[in-house]
Design a protein around this nucleic acid. Structure first.
Lengths: 141, 141
DNA sequence: TCGAAATCCGATGATTTCAGTCGGGATTAA
DNA sequence: TTAATCCCGACTGAAATCATCGGATTTCGA
């Protein structure tokens, strides 16, 4: 279980934009200075835009900027925009697939529990938390 | 972020073995009745054996059985055996790779926090919990 | 002793996903 | 008008995933 580069780069880009919030639109080229392949990054920013997390300004002097304040964007928003909804096992995502015996399946409850726990975890950290580094106070056991 | 079939099938097989704990070794064929491709499952059981989670009895009347009591095997053990250690972003796993500016990188702390939270979550559920269905009392926010 | 029932294991093949590239189009400030 | 910049679909190579195959080994039971 690991994150793809989409999720990773997407978060890096969003952190960059959060740091520059208020400074006007940031060009793709500027963001790519983080060390990310620029044409690939362009795709990712497209996903972030379609998810409503960033706004774009087209034309010369254009670029990308956050669509909302940093305390209203969570890691969950970003990861879902980049990788689609977290889904550990299909049998938990509405449509019943594959599993003919979902009744009484001891695994099903676990998938649901884990999925919602991890979602909660991701949704509890905002960009603004990341910038101010107040992470780790929360406890999970 | 999703689980591969390795993790999923591995857990299903372990749950099956947990249900049959004490009934002697269960053959591959019996386990595959869950609906899993048997030759593939064989590989997976090999991994579980090498991880010390199951014992095998070779020869006629042989099969697989849990190596430890059901309350001493957690989901984390199983997932790690099947997919390797959970690792969201490389830059958190000891060896420093890729990231030249790990100092002051706002993402780094998040990866570490999330990784250890999810590990804790997975490690808090045992096979015996799954059978008795006492899951969900724990709270994560 | 022999055969059937089982696990063990390395090699191979099919399919899918991932990561990244390419080329051209559209928009806008200067 | 030109240069900067975003937009977008198609494409490609590499890797991972999900198996399948064929044979070797071990052991029970008749």
């Amino acid at each position: 279980m690991k994150l793809s580069t989409r999720g990773k780069y997407g978060l890096y880009a969003m952190v960059y934009l959060a740091q520059k919030a208020g400074d006007g639109p940031q060009s793709l080229k500027a963001i790519a200075e983080l060390g990310l392949p620029d044409q690939y990054l362009e795709q990712l920013l497209g996903s972030l835009r379609r998810a409503g997390l960033v706004n774009t300004v087209r034309g010369a002097q254009g670029g990308y900027q956050l669509a909302r304040p940093t305390d209203q964007i969570t890691i969950l928003h970003i990861i879902e925009a980049m990788e689609g909804p977290l889904n550990l096992s299909e049998c938990t995502c509405g449509e019943e697939v594959a599993c003919p015996r979902s009744e009484g399946c001891p695994s099903r409850g676990v998938w649901e529990y884990l999925t919602s726990s991890i979602n909660g975890l991701l949704d509890s950290i905002t960009l603004s938390d990341m910038l101010s580094r107040t992470i780790g106070e929360k406890d999970v056991t």
